[in-house]
């Protein structure tokens, strides 16, 4: 099973088993890390905001228009900002590294 690497807001690294087909948000949430994901992955809340390690950025499918619009409601958005519910785990993403964005 692929694993993803998640830095929490205190900078601590968590290496998580990531079933193929799950979203990155689901992996993070099921591991009990603090991610609000208020809309449950429907791209309707922006509370699953993460920063993707720059090395991984172009290995991801580019965001849909929906996701970019929703990111407008997030805070401290950067070039490497993504909504983790919109990133599907694939075998190629083994080792994907993300950091939880600040909560608000």
């Amino acid at each position: 099973m692929p694993t993803i690497r998640v830095f929490d807001r205190e900078g601590k690294l968590h290496v998580l088993d990531a079933p193929v087909g799950w979203s990155v948000m689901e992996v993070i949430r099921e591991a009990g890390l603090p991610i609000e994901a208020a809309c449950g992955g429907c791209c309707a809340c922006a509370t699953c905001h993460v920063y993707v390690d720059p090395e991984w950025l172009d290995k991801l499918e580019p965001p849909h228009a929906d996701e970019t619009l929703m990111l407008d409601e997030a805070f401290q958005v950067q070039d490497n900002s993504r909504l983790s519910c919109q990133i599907k785990v694939t075998p190629e993403l083994d080792g994907l590294t993300v950091t939880l964005a600040p909560e608000f």
Binding site: E73, P102, F104
Partner: peptide
């Protein structure tokens, strides 16, 4: 529901 909808504050 999950509570009242309220505006998000500036974090």
């Amino acid at each position: 529901g999950a509570g009242s909808f309220v505006p998000r504050r500036l974090p």
